[in-house]
């Protein structure tokens, strides 16, 4: 997993609420046994017409936002299925950070496990960032995870909260499984002590 430190990019505004994982990556694209390559179908229905050509009015198709690494969205982003293909598709497209008023639980977990930083901010701050983002190519933002700060195009700084453990893992690109395996003695002890046997 790549380490996350600071990220400077144009931010793409997606002012929709309840963006679900079927929107992020429809089920018909889940028939892969790999983690990569899903970026091509990210937001497929929003991005493409039925004949496969791009919808010009969709934000990620506009020249200014094609290489955005930050996405700003409405509340309850990532609701719906548990498919990790959603963060994989975002990441494969190049999105490394999503900023929204709230996120669905499973999506939240899945994203941080793949090195995507999700930032929750109050609606007023989202509204401001959304406006900033709409400025397009000249309006880059910088997300600094260590300092927990977003610096807008006008130099304004917004502070954000992040779970300490997730921050540590993101900043160091740590793999949860390796960390947990170091505790295998404790796991074995737990198994031995389980009062009601379940096998």
């Amino acid at each position: 997993m790549d380490k996350f430190n600071t990220l400077t990019s144009v931010a793409a505004p997606l002012p929709l609420i309840n963006v679900d994982t079927d929107m992020i990556i429809p089920a018909r694209f889940l028939k892969t046994i790999k983690r990569t390559g899903l970026g091509a179908d990210l937001f497929s229905t929003l991005r493409f017409q039925e004949d496969g050509s791009e919808r010009e009015d969709f934000v990620l198709n506009k020249p200014a936002f094609r290489n955005s690494e930050i996405l700003i969205a409405g509340k309850n982003f990532g609701c719906g299925s548990s498919r990790e293909h959603a963060p994989w598709a975002l990441l494969d497209f190049g999105i490394k950070c999503v900023i929204a008023p709230s996120f669905a639980d499973i999506f939240y977990n899945n994203s941080s496990k793949n090195g995507i930083l999700l930032i929750k901010l109050p609606q007023e701050q989202i509204d401001k960032l959304m406006k900033d983002a709409e400025l397009g190519a000249n309006a880059t933002m910088t997300v600094n995870l260590e300092a927990q700060e977003i610096t807008g195009p006008d130099g304004d700084v917004i502070k954000f909260e992040v779970d300490a453990f997730k921050k540590h893992c993101l900043m160091n690109g740590l793999d949860d499984i390796g960390l947990t395996m170091e505790k295998s003695d404790k796991i074995a002890a737990f198994e031995a002590s389980q009062k009601v046997k379940i096998t």
Partner: peptide
């Protein structure tokens, strides 16, 4: 509860 693929691996 439902989990993602990284958690399946975990």
């Amino acid at each position: 509860f439902g989990i993602g693929t990284s958690e399946v691996e975990h």
